[in-house]
Design a protein around this nucleic acid. Sequence first.
DNA 1: TTGTAAATTTAGACAAGCCTAAAAAAAATA
DNA 2: TATTTTTTTTAGGCTTGTCTAAATTTACAA
Lengths: 216, 216
Amino acid sequence: MHTLAEENYLKAIFKLSQITENVSTNQIAAELATKASSVTDMLRKLAEKLLINYTRYQGVSLTQTGEKVAINIIRRHRLWEYFLVEKLHFKWDEVHDMAEEMEHISSNELIDRLDEFMGFPSRDPHGDPIPDSKGNFKKNDLKPISAVDVNICGIISGVKDHSTAFLQYLEKQGLTIGKKITIKEIITYDNAVILQMENKDIQISRDVAINLLIAL
Amino acid sequence: MHTLAEENYLKAIFKLSQITENVSTNQIAAELATKASSVTDMLRKLAEKLLINYTRYQGVSLTQTGEKVAINIIRRHRLWEYFLVEKLHFKWDEVHDMAEEMEHISSNELIDRLDEFMGFPSRDPHGDPIPDSKGNFKKNDLKPISAVDVNICGIISGVKDHSTAFLQYLEKQGLTIGKKITIKEIITYDNAVILQMENKDIQISRDVAINLLIAL
DNA sequence: TTGTAAATTTAGACAAGCCTAAAAAAAATA
DNA sequence: TATTTTTTTTAGGCTTGTCTAAATTTACAA
């Protein structure tokens, strides 16, 4: 259907579109660890295939078709992550790179059967919603801890940073999905956050607070 | 580790090595539906990487390293086929192309866990033996029906041709793996074979008899 | 053994995707 | 508004893996 490179571009553009309406060449280059000139080349190609809206110097957005393709890739990625953790017992910090390869397996019939095999899960091991076979999925209504007031309590439900390093840190602190926490104090000096979990106090830096999401 | 193209060449060379000691450029070209000149290019590359023994005009064989890699690809292919049939309930004639993509997922940890998840199966849905994680697997001691005498009985245990068309034909005739058959008669005129299965007589052509394997 | 056919390799070209360096456009700032 | 900085695009090149056409080597047959 589409080449591996095309799929990766579409996925990157989709991800960046969540933050800004129009996505810039440099943003895509950073996301894919490639050069801006390479991005320009690919954008021309994707525009020709009617997967993105692109005018020179103006940034890009996905067309309806492009968005459909991107969501499908995300569906595949998240279902494979769920499979790896739930069926093959990998840890949540081990699955990203494998799923990155597996998301490009092209058969939709395969992915629908995998979905059924696992009982149509609604979230992947990192708390991200899994689109259904029609591409529908809940918008994430989770909030970063950094955006929550003191004395509010909630349940750890997702992460913004999916890196192994970050997930391993959370694991070590016991800050895993499903845990109930209360925001106790925000240190004004460096915006570190002290939270209470299972009657223990844990201090996390602002960086961590930005990347750890809770449901209220 | 290795590129997709390299893996496909190694797999093809391994497959052809089962039949002839030294594999020719043209044989590989036919197997991969490519041109002889393309094959020559790749052979130089694989030889440089010490994956094959190659001298110009002399054909090739796999080195120990190359064989290891090839067997690993076959292990991955057959385990994924088993997964697709046993867990996702695909039919045996539907899984080849999907497994062809999945065999290139690189993690060995993944494949070992998949193996364990399925209980270390020894044969794939087409009766082919699945190499274990060390690369050991039983040589196939199955015989094509065309090479068996009249009145001998055996159990359908494998196929030589993995094409959808052939497998669908077998399915329709009920000639599936595990069925017990007896060779009743060989027509001298065209070498067609009449065999008995579940008290019914079935006639198959020589072409089919060559590609259908039984255990005695 | 020599001539022809078949198989294989070399030479040169092309597409996809990436790169660096330079040019052009847009944005920011004086 | 004029100038500088940043962003984006263009131009030209590289690698991988493919191709066609031509050259070379091997195999076979007279």
